[in-house]
Nucleic acid binder design. Structure first.
Length: 654
DNA sequence: ATCCCTCGAGTTCA
DNA sequence: CTCGAGGGAT
């Protein structure tokens, strides 16, 4: 394509995206994609030496809606220059140094909506959105509903302050729990609330505002530090993060640290803002058409991208539950190429309005599991996703309980394979090398359908299989053999009784001590166990009344499975005794399973989610939302060294 | 009956 | 990590 034509195409695209983002509050591409297009346009304009009149590089923001009163800002509101790499940041730093800058401030770059608030005589007069930087909208009534924005301040002169309106993640979570119309992300939620003409809606979303700048104050000059002090003294929320540093290294270190821990914050930030503190240097640096030269935003690597849905595949799990997996066009996301993403169930598909051929937002939750957030844009050829009626694996008619789909066929091949691989899994019988794939091979070629058959496999049988050479065969038979010695709780968990996971398996083992004890247990004895109620108790009784199940257990024992007798070797008097502990993040040199074992030895109940009742959160590296939640709830956070110290105290080796 | 907490089960990529 | 559902407190 001719470069000039490409330039026009880029302008049209960016305009469309601007309209969606600024005017409709409904972005249809990720920030990363937008930035890429934007920079391509900037580069083209530089190369051709032409900037068309309607180029978005000339404007800040987009048009204003008619719904709200328009307000012309007293001074133009600038946006921020961006640095995408440390190199770009360093170039800017060196320029500022050359102008004599000594001190730099580093702040969060909040991902919310910018607001400017004017005070006169200590009274809030007017609040406005940024709009296109020259004309914004009057949102005074809406801002008055935000609890942490003071309606009156001690300062008596004329002052305009600037900050960001946002919805805290904990508030978003609360909102989504009580609403069947979940909001995609905190930024959109805040935008929707703030730009709602009905201020009751605004008030109900519990927004917050974090202020970070003083725009004009009776003609006085202020450094960034002065501005920050002023805001704090006058009762504005500044979110308690503000650093002044003097070297490029310090700036980078700070950014690095925040990038690694940002997921534990209760607010969304998409980067860091670095500003020259000294106002004299600010003056000599000056402004471009769009932004001040004395400040720059370092943007974190994008965590959200968009892609096109190609297909939906329904997977059948061991319980028969079907989960939709979405095949998407490959996209780069948080350091990996993503081609599949999960959706929870059919309801999720309906709620998020996902269709084949449509563009969707994709994110890696906890930077790991790809997940579809919602639709960015539908196209003419988008196809709605139908509820399947027969099992994609075995053709059996499916059951639908209005939320989940089930394949009721116990002998459905997928169900058989997943039962085998669950039996072999790490926390169950721990048979190394018996992955889902291997289980499938064994089922398809050797007709293995029951765990007991694993213990009957011979080297000769395995040798005929593709890719099974002597070494692999030996390793596999070896790990099958060594799995024969196991603990009662692992064995019970491996059976895959409906509703019985690791915790319940442990509780059963601790209560009844032996396999026979559990087999013979009466409903009344089982339901007496804490955390086991009617449904799970029935499921357990039913399982051990089924002749097929009892026969399979006998076959396993005949094959040589030995169950270690339970020994209760807990110590008493530890700080963890009878306390509930949640693990999060990566622990140095220790797996979560091992840490759990030690904690249980010390008398702790290790649970999976944080609540008010949690006593300790043991946080490792890169801890995520659980640490954030602990902080909001005021739960005590400890580190691995606290656990190790406690182990030392009781002379437990680790 | 309702709410809150915790468990179970399923998920991706390198 | 996420959702849905089971269990228990109120």
């Amino acid at each position: 394509m001719d470069k000039f034509a490409r330039m026009q195409e880029l302008i049209a695209l960016i305009k469309k995206y601007n309209y969606a983002y600024y005017t409709l509050d409904n972005p249809i591409v990720s920030d990363k994609e937008y930035d890429d297009l934007y920079y391509e346009l900037v580069a083209l304009e530089k190369e051709l030496g032409v900037t068309l009149d309607d180029s978005p590089t000339k404007q800040v923001g987009d048009v204003v809606l008619d719904k709200f009163e328009k307000i012309t800002h007293e001074k133009k509101l600038y946006s921020l220059n961006k640095a995408n790499t440390y190199d770009e940041l360093e170039d800017w730093y060196n320029d500022m140094r050359a102008l004599g800058a000594k001190k730099f401030t580093v702040e969060y770059k909040y991902d919310g909506l910018r607001v400017v608030i004017k005070y006169e005589n200590g009274i809030m007069k007017q609040c406005a959105t940024r709009g296109n930087g020259i004309v914004g909208e009057d949102i005074t009534a809406q801002v008055k509903t935000i609890r942490n924005v003071p309606k009156t301040i001690p300062y008596r002169g004329k002052v305009t302050v600037m900050g960001e309106v946002l919805m805290k993640l904990s508030e978003l979570e609360k909102y989504n729990k009580s609403s069947n119309e979940p909001l995609k992300n905190a930024r959109n939620a805040a935008a929707g609330a703030l730009r709602n003409l009905d201020t009751k809606v605004t008030a109900s979303r519990n927004l917050d505002a974090i202020m970070y700048d003083v725009l004009s104050i009776d003609g006085e000059m202020m450094s960034q530090t002065d501005a920050h002090d002023f805001l704090q003294k006058n009762g504005f929320d500044t979110f308690n993060f503000f650093s002044v540093v003097d070297s490029f290294r310090d700036i980078c270190q700070l950014i690095e640290k925040v990038d690694n821990t940002k997921s534990s914050l209760d607010v969304l930030i998409d980067g860091m803002v670095v500003k020259v503190d000294d106002y004299g240097v600010r003056d000599s640096a000056g402004y471009t058409e769009k932004f001040p030269k004395w400040a720059i935003a370092y943007k974190f690597k994008a965590l959200e991208v968009t892609s096109i849905v190609r297909n939906i595949v329904w997977q059948v799990g061991r319980t028969g539950k079907l989960t939709p997996v979405c095949e998407i066009d490959p996209v780069e996301l948080a350091g990996a190429t993503v081609t599949h993403a999960t959706i929870n169930n059919y309801n999720d598909i309906k709620r998020k309005d996902i269709a084949i051929g449509s563009r969707v937002f994709v994110r890696r939750s906890n930077e790991v599991i790809p997940e579809i957030l919602g639709v960015a844009e539908h196209y003419e050829n988008s196809v709605k996703i139908e509820l399947p009626s027969i099992c994609p694996c075995c053709g059996t008619r499916l059951q639908y309980d209005d939320i989940n789909l089930f394949c009721p066929n116990y002998m459905c091949p997928d169900r058989i394979v997943f039962r085998l691989s669950h039996f072999a899994s790490q926390n169950a019988m721990n048979i190394e090398g018996l992955s889902e794939k291997t289980c499938r091979t064994l089922y398809e070629n050797l007709g293995v359908t029951l765990p007991s058959q694993l213990y009957m496999l011979s080297a000769n049988e395995l040798r005929v299989l593709d890719g099974f050479k002597d070494k692999k065969i030996n390793n596999m038979l070896g790990s099958i053999e060594s799995s024969k010695n196991t603990q009662l709780s692992r064995f019970i968990y491996a059976l895959g009784i409906s509703g019985v996971g690791e915790k319940t398996a442990k509780d059963l083992s601790n209560t009844f001590k032996t396999l026979d004890g559990i087999k013979m247990a009466k409903y009344d004895d089982i339901i007496a166990i804490k955390d086991i109620g009617d449904i799970i108790a029935n499921s357990i009784v039913e399982y051990f009344h089924n002749v097929d199940n009892l026969n399979e257990i006998d076959r396993l024992l005949d094959a040589g499975v030995q169950i270690e007798t339970m020994q209760n070797n807990r110590v008493a008097g530890s700080i963890f005794d009878n306390k509930s502990v949640v693990l999060t993040g990566t622990l140095e040199n220790m797996s979560r399973e091992t840490a759990t074992e030690y904690l249980e030895k010390l008398g702790a109940h290790v649970v999976s989610s944080v609540s008010k009742k949690t006593d300790y959160v043991l946080a490792g590296e890169n801890a995520g939302s659980k640490l954030a939640k602990a902080n909001t709830l005021g739960v005590r956070v400890i580190s691995l060294s606290d656990l190790l110290a406690e182990l030392d105290k009781f002379q437990i080796k680790y």
